[in-house]
Design a protein around this nucleic acid. Structure first.
Lengths: 189, 189, 189, 189
DNA sequence: CATGAATGAGGATTCATTCAT
DNA sequence: TATGAATGAATCCTCATTCAT
């Protein structure tokens, strides 16, 4: 076999895509992504069949990195609220540590280039949070309530993150405020 | 001296832009927007200097329509919570009644084509909600708390609206659930 | 109305396309065709939706020019053979007078970019030659015989033309030889 | 010293090229040809210096296969017409038996990628048919007449073959009709 | 010798904007 | 003022060919 497809290059392309998507949105040109990754434009298309494919894989890649960050600690010994709070903090901290990744993710979140299948795959990566989100809203099925709560959790975290990232001096306060809001909203205790 | 350019055409262009931005995102071609508005391609640029200008004006236009909807009723006589709930319902109902406008707005919300000045202008249109959002979060100034709460309110409403619009049969339940979540999160009573 | 779509430019594009298709085949780049026509590359796509569309329209255009050449004279007064011979000569003479057009036509003839509908439309432009092609071949229906004979006539003319064009000194001899071959082949008299 | 490159692979590449050129024209990508042949992309270029070289060798290869088919039988004992008819039938039958080869050949026939030298080499493979094509056309030298007649023979056969292949039920009738046309055209007896 | 990853020039097409009419 | 033809830079993607493994 000749040279194998380099994981380094694939990673470099994803990293370059994350950065440029964060800064320019999903309209970032493939030519710039390739240049930023240090490869020829044609090379990008050996790793990703189309630009849309790249965007979908980037979404999975970033979600998977986020997922890894969230499951870093073993929280089994803690109370529900403590676990929830720990995961919330891990999320915000991940976003603060990787602002471009977080920004790229929020761009992809609202892009119709990311297919429903991809979103489903990404969703499946995350551990079950139905315990955390808890209550069933009146008039909604268990499933509908959970999906709705999960989405609220996600958008709350994204908003909190953007405030925390914009005001580094207050980031810890926004982080705490966001969790307080969430936890009350979910009507625990 | 009266405005020399037809207000009808300006309005038609904004309406066309709203529809196409809702369906295709901010990448919707100006040529299609012009055609949908029933004017020539070049005419669009007599009403809006650039495409970015059109997008910014569209943002203001939609925000202003939303604002009008929210201030339709005189709520002075009601309690704080009743007023808040009424405004929440007016928001969701406006979104359900004008799904394309709401969708366009959420596209513009995340677009970097909409300038900070435009966002500030739009924000200034809305009445003060500091009373409604209430509490000050620990570690944040009054101003920071209010800005944060307002943003949480906005994203909550947007998320609620998207669920309500996708499940018309449950739209009332989502609307109620969203408000319940918000009100608890804001820690009133 | 602003400037109308210029017939001159459309014609220039078709002429440029004919020349470049003749010299380089249907793979001739649109950028070169536009340059040769003296217009910007984008302009080509205002006159022809796609390159394939251009090729199909070019086919019709050239066939129509050929058709015009063949029907220039009123031959009603002549015998069948005289009429056939006159048309044959008009064909070869047209090809000798417009070698690039003839060459382009033979490239398009074998290209799968030219759709069956286009071929049908072009075929319909030509006057009925069933009288000229005459006989029915054993085992074939009238319709099959005619289609077959017409095609033989066409390829014979194309071949004759290419020999005549390559040997200008003998062009009249090839022209006569080709007709002699055809007329005997068709088993008239 | 034996040839170092595998004849199997060379043959597989030619066969793959024939099929893809038949179906897609000379624009068929080398990568697809290689894949179809079961070898790596780069391997193709160890057997053929360039794509054009491959196309020229393919032309020779197919012409040689055709030539073999035409000289399969010993026809010395038959009359001129019988021999001519037999060869004609062998041609058409070969084309019906190997439709992709025949289609590829007609694509190559009109392609300017096949060099004059290649065409000359291919022509030299075929036995002399000057006896069969017979007559000298008025105004043309013996050599010119023969070349012209040979070309007419070739294009007639190609046209006949395409009709026969498209209408399998009538293929024998087209085959006979084509020969009748040719024989009369050549003005024998 | 075989492989297939890497390359980058080139191709068709789109689109915001200008300007002649 | 309204029009829409004209523009050409920019975009995504293809592909013949090279060369490291």
């Amino acid at each position: 076999m000749a040279r194998p497809l380099s994981e380094d290059k694939q990673f470099a392309l994803l990293a370059a895509a994350a950065e440029l998507v964060a800064l320019q949105g999903v309209g970032a040109p493939t030519s710039q992504i390739a240049r930023q990754a240090g490869v020829a434009e044609g090379t990008l298309f050996r790793y990703f069949a189309t630009k849309d494919d790249l965007l979908n894989q980037l979404y999975l890649h970033l979600k998977s990195e986020l997922c890894t960050a969230l499951t870093a600690e073993n929280l089994a010994a803690y109370s529900l609220k403590e676990r929830a709070h720990a995961v919330w903090n891990l999320y915000i901290d991940w976003g603060l540590a990787h602002p471009l990744a977080a920004k790229a993710l929020s761009q992809l979140h609202v892009s119709d280039k990311v297919l429903p299948e991809t979103r489903a795959k990404a969703h499946a990566m995350f551990p079950d949070v139905s315990e955390i989100v808890g209550n069933v809203f009146a008039g909604l099925s268990q499933q509908q309530s959970t999906a709705f709560s999960e989405m609220l959790l996600g958008t709350l975290a994204e908003t909190t993150l953007s405030f925390a990232a914009s005001n580094p001096a207050q980031s810890q306060s926004y982080k705490a405020a966001g969790f307080a809001f969430l936890w009350r909203g979910l009507a625990h205790d």
